[in-house]
Simulated scan of single mutants.
Amino acid sequence: MPTASPRHSASVAGITVREDGRILVIRRADNGTWEPPGGVLELDEAPQAGVAREVFEEIGITVDVRQLTGVYKNMRQGVVALAFRCEPVAGTERTSNETTAVEWLTPDEVRERMSEVFAMRVLDALDGNGPQVRSHDGRRLIPAG
């Protein structure tokens, strides 16, 4: 009997940018890290719909999902994350059972507060150079090659 192949999990993240250039981020309730809002994509869900759902569930903001800005693979866990640049449309920021804080940060504050792998998702969305494809080990980027 053949051995089953490992499976990947697909997740999405919404990099929501205001007109003043500040980026909406959350502090996760489970581990205290600062990240863009997001989560696991449902089986019957389109990626853009998943981003909008996750951002709304986690922080109460309705977003317009604009464009794919990056594809990121955690090589240790087999998680592939799709990051999308979004614009806020409606709602008021609030915490949820998944978040302990919600803030609008500058790019410099993103670099200071977020781990390299999550900061890179935000910075890639801001640079406008098209979708980036990157691999990481959960903490640090793995050089392409």
Rank of each mutant, 00 (worst) to 15 (best):
R113C: 05
P37G: 02
R66E: 13
E58Y: 13
I15G: 03
S135V: 11
F84Q: 04
G32F: 04
A13H: 08
S96E: 07
P131W: 03
L105M: 14
P6L: 12
V12C: 01
I23A: 00
I15Q: 00
E35Q: 12
G138H: 05
D44Y: 08
T92Q: 14
L126Q: 04
R113D: 02
P88T: 01
L123D: 05
L43A: 15
G78T: 09
A101C: 05
L68M: 09
A90V: 02
P143A: 10
V89G: 07
V122H: 01
Q132D: 08
T69M: 03
P143V: 08
V122E: 00
R76I: 10
G14I: 09
G39I: 11
H136T: 03
L105I: 04
E42P: 02
N129M: 11
D137S: 09
E87Y: 07
S96G: 03
T100F: 05
A4E: 13
R76M: 07
N31K: 04
A81R: 15
N31P: 03
L126Y: 00
V133T: 10
L141V: 09
V110I: 15
D44P: 02
R22F: 00
A46H: 12
I23T: 12
M120A: 13
V25K: 00
I15N: 06
I61W: 01
P36V: 15
A46F: 10
V110D: 06
M1F: 06
P88G: 03
A10M: 13
K73Q: 13
A144V: 13
V55Y: 00
R85L: 15
V102W: 02
L123R: 06
N31A: 11
R113S: 05
R111H: 10
E42G: 13
G60H: 08
T95L: 02
V17S: 02
A90G: 00
P37L: 06
I142T: 14
V110P: 06
E57F: 09
M120P: 00
W34R: 07
V65Y: 00
D64Y: 11
G138W: 00
A119Q: 02
Q67W: 09
M75C: 13
